[in-house]
Nucleic acid binder design. Structure first.
Length: 110
DNA sequence: CGTTTGACGGTCC
DNA sequence: CGGACCGCCAAAC
């Protein structure tokens, strides 16, 4: 390719690097890719639904550990279900032990 | 080309 | 702890 990798492609790549059973945040990805705004991650992931690539967007939550993006999935409960399936405890649309299973590319990935 | 919106984050009170 | 407010950048209108 000519290197036309948009910020969206980088977000996809980072999301694919998130280990199962772990969750990342929009801010962490934004900081790692130096996008300057966490909103860009949300916009990029919104396109991931239209994309044919298997992007585990369900592993990305906001800084509070809430499944803020669940409403964009095929079913609002799909995101929580996928996380629960991977061993992540989700209650009331919030990730339990969030600080424990939180995964930061800038810290975990070196 | 100005305005609005959006899967956010941090600060302030 | 939670609500209000601003900053942030890109796409949609």
């Amino acid at each position: 390719m000519t290197g036309k990798e948009s910020y969206q492609d980088r977000v996809f790549d980072v999301c694919k690097m998130i280990p199962a059973g772990r969750v990342s945040t929009y801010g962490a990805i934004s900081n790692f890719l130096d996008l300057g705004s966490a909103r860009m991650v949300g916009w990029a992931l919104n396109k991931c639904i239209m994309s044919n690539d298997p992007v585990p967007a369900h592993r990305v939550v906001n800084r509070k550990g809430e499944l803020s993006g669940r409403i964009h999935f095929a079913h609002p409960d799909l995101m929580a279900k996928l996380l629960n399936k991977e061993g992540v405890v989700v209650m009331d649309n919030k990730v339990q032990n969030f600080e424990v299973i939180k995964w930061d590319p800038s810290k975990e990935l070196y």
